[in-house]
Structure formats: structure tokens, C-alpha cells
């Protein structure tokens, strides 16, 4: 049952509602229900945060290593290099997101202009 499995206008919306909205708002509603019953420092939450972080990191790496669209025309080394340059600039430049984003984009544009 993939996103394109059923050829009907409503299927992608049903897919988004079930795999996206329900899978996300269920956790928000659980949070309201639990109120203040979980300790933020509990070990279970450390595991939960680790899994969520690794999962999103995996998505990000795949967007850079196996891109679609315009980024696919850029050599792998430049894509990875530009992302790495943005991250290093973020770490060295006072940990401001905007510094990392601008440095990464500048590295990509410079590389594309030179190639």
C-alpha cells in the first residue's frame, strides 16, 4: 500500500492522514493526556530522543547522498562537501543555524560556479 498504490484522488490524502497526521498528533494528544507525569530526564526518553534523532539524520544524509531533482546534477563530493562546510561553519560560528545555512549554500554556489 504505497503512496501511489490506489489510483483515486482521495488515496494520497488518506495516506497523509494515516501515516502523517495520526502518527504525529497521537503523540501530541498523549502528551496533553499525560500532563506532567513523565520526568524529562527519564532513561526511556533518552532512548526515544536517540532513535528519533538517528532517524531524522538518516533521512537528511539520504537527501544529500541520493538526491532527486536539481541537486542530482551536482557531483556527490560537492553535495557532501557543501553540507559539511555548512555544519562546520555552524559549529565554529557560534552555533547559529543561519550561519550554517548561509555557509553551506555559499559553498554549493561557489562549487557549482567553478565546475
Amino acid at each position: 500500500m504505497t503512496f501511489e498504490a490506489i489510483d483515486a484522488w482521495w488515496w494520497p490524502y488518506a495516506f497523509i492522514l494515516l501515516a502523517g497526521w495520526l502518527a504525529t498528533d497521537a503523540w501530541r494528544f498523549l502528551g496533553v493526556y499525560l500532563g506532567g507525569r513523565i520526568a524529562e530526564e527519564s532513561d526511556l526518553l533518552v532512548l526515544v530522543r536517540c532513535i528519533a534523532t538517528a532517524l531524522v539524520a538518516a533521512v537528511i544524509a539520504n537527501l544529500v547522498v541520493f538526491p532527486n531533482g536539481a541537486l542530482a546534477g551536482v557531483p556527490l563530493a560537492l553535495r557532501v562537501g557543501a553540507a559539511a562546510a555548512g555544519f562546520v561553519a555552524y559549529l565554529l560560528g557560534g552555533r547559529h543555524i543561519i550561519v550554517g545555512v548561509l555557509a553551506g549554500e555559499a559553498a554549493l554556489f561557489a562549487g557549482m560556479a567553478l565546475l
Binding site: 501515516a19 502518527a23 501530541r28 502528551g31 513523565i38 532517524l55
Partner: peptide, 26 residues
């Protein structure tokens, strides 16, 4: 091209972190 269940499971794993955020804000 993941199926509905695999997609929902992956999204749910990425959204678990919202629960502690809601728990601390509410």
C-alpha cells in the same frame, strides 16, 4: 516507495519526541 505501515511507523518514531515537549509545555 514505502508502504503505509512502514511510512506510519517511521513517522511515528520521528514524532515520539513531541510527547515530552507537550508534557513540559502544557
Amino acid at each position: 516507495g514505502n508502504g503505509l505501515l512502514a511510512a506510519a511507523f517511521a513517522v511515528a518514531l520521528s514524532s515520539v519526541r513531541l510527547t515530552p515537549m507537550v508534557v513540559s509545555l502544557v
